[in-house]
Design a protein around this nucleic acid. Structure first.
Length: 109
DNA sequence: TGGCTGACTTTCG
DNA sequence: ACGAAAGCCAGCC
């Protein structure tokens, strides 16, 4: 796990506080320039079935739920985010900037 | 073994 | 301001 960047991604995603969201680029930047934002999304693809990985809190750079289609149901992602207290409209997170959670800043590594 | 794919981001035109 | 293209790396034929 720790050897694979997948594990790092999962760990970061698990650390996302409730009601907060982050984007792929932030995670990629936090893990280091060794990976690209695409790989984060690729890692999330492998996160399927991992209940410990709140992939719904990971969205694209503009707060759009691009990965919702990969969930059990396209609306599942929005429902989960709404349960966290977020406001989703037209598959986009409202006040995304305020709810944005940057691991490189919050974790201050 | 080699090449295509992908839940993205950034920059150039 | 908008559109298109490149860049990145691991997993899967």
């Amino acid at each position: 796990m720790n050897t694979n960047f997948f594990g790092d991604v999962y760990d970061v995603v698990r650390l996302i506080p409730k009601g907060r969201v982050t984007n792929y680029g932030a995670i990629a930047n936090f893990l280091g320039s060794r990976i690209s934002a695409r790989m984060v999304g690729w890692a999330m693809n492998a996160a399927h079935g991992m209940d410990d990985v709140p992939a719904q809190r990971v969205v694209n750079h503009m707060g759009l739920l691009t990965g919702k289609m990969h969930f059990e149901t396209p609306t599942k992602m929005q429902e989960l985010l709404e349960e966290d207290g977020l406001v989703i409209e037209n598959d986009q997170i409202q006040d995304f900037k305020k709810h944005f959670w940057d691991p490189a800043v919050e974790l201050e590594i």
